[in-house]
Computed example of a mutant assay.
Amino acid sequence: MDHDAVLALYDRDMREGAQPDSPESRIERTGKVVRQVSTAQGWNGVVWSDLDAGSADAAIAEQIAYYSGLGHEFEWKLYGHDLPVDLGQRLRSAGFTPQPEETLMIGEVNDLTLDAEPPEGIRVLPVTDQAGVDLVADVHEAAFGTDSTRLRHQLLAQLTAEPDTVVAVLALDGDTPVSAARMELVPGTRFAGLWGGGTVEAWRGRGIYRALVALRAREAAERGYRYLQVDAMSTSRPILERLGFEPLTTTTPYLYTP
């Protein structure tokens, strides 16, 4: 994989040319910043910027004023190659709080290892309705220890209004939900994104996460997507590398609460 070329394509298609991630959201382009604006229950934040040392502080202040006027918490999604090089420090100085750093990993679908299957006793079901969404949200809370209100709302809205833009799956041990994940499909691009893959602690280390990645990758290939993208935590990066994903840069969410 030509890392520089694929990263430039990702920036162009998925960041500068971003599309809203839910029916309730919209993309706005203001100056050299691209942001998503949603409801208080959706994701609000900056997805791309083209700044330099002379323009960064004013652009940061403009976004703070805009989202504060809406009363929304928002995120500035900073990538390791974004400019200026001290943009993270400028965000911290402006009152943003950095979250744990992740690794942007991308795999070319035709080069990935896609034969991983769920371990014995684990069955995987598609999520298509409110009951399934509730189980996905419950697994998310158990796996990550975070509130799943936003996920619950967004996933149900997507499945209801735009079902072709998301694939969600649930893994069960008998009748017990133990892992869940989703894939975001962006029409008109070559990228599909893997999100929310989480397994309840007692069931980790059995290959369930790997199997759900492979399942979604096969689905992406069938739908004609060339690349899969993951914002990987340190726990999932080794699994993804074994499947054929490659690290391209880092990504750090910077949160601002009005």
Rank of each mutant, 00 (worst) to 15 (best):
M105H: 01
M105Y: 04
M105L: 07
M105E: 04
I106M: 04
G107K: 08
E108L: 15
V109S: 08
N110S: 15
N110P: 15
D111A: 15
L112Y: 11
L112T: 06
L112D: 07
T113H: 12
L114H: 12
L114D: 11
A116C: 05
A116T: 12
A116D: 10
E117T: 14
P118T: 06
P119K: 08
P119W: 08
E120K: 14
E120F: 12
G121Q: 09
I122N: 10
I122M: 11
I122K: 10
V124E: 08
V124Q: 00
L125N: 11
P126C: 11
P126R: 09
P126I: 12
P126H: 09
V127D: 00
V127I: 10
T128G: 11
T128P: 12
D129P: 08
G132H: 03
G132R: 03
G132M: 05
V133E: 02
V133H: 06
V133K: 01
V136L: 14
A137T: 04
A137R: 09
D138G: 06
D138A: 14
V139Q: 02
V139G: 01
V139M: 01
H140L: 00
H140K: 00
E141P: 00
A142W: 00
T146S: 13
D147W: 04
D147V: 07
D147N: 12
T149P: 01
R150L: 13
R150G: 12
L151Y: 02
L151E: 05
H153N: 09
H153G: 05
H153T: 03
